[in-house]
Amino acid sequence: MEITLTHYLLLAMTVFLTGMVGFVVRRNAIVMLMCVELMLSSVNIVFAAYSRFHANADGHVFVLMNFAVAAAEAAIGLAILVEIFRRRRTVNVDDLKALME
């Protein structure tokens, strides 16, 4: 079976939905963060696939940029979570309502 663009897109969709569902149903901030990373990855897949499909390198550029953004985001996000955990002893988002108003 030849692997076509459609397959890549289906994969990307699966990964994205996994991430999305995980993001809205889980309460653990670390898991939610990982779900966000999943969604970003799915977008990367789409970029790479289309890059190949159109036979130009633009998509790869964006993939690389996304990597950088994702890495930075994960680093900062985790650092914040560690700090929150140190102070609150929890990373359950339902317990973190300081942003209200």
Partner: peptide, 16 residues
Amino acid sequence: RLFQNGMVRFYAWSFT
């Protein structure tokens, strides 16, 4: 302001 309740998951659902 009722919508800004600080519930991250509420925001996530709304967004989604």
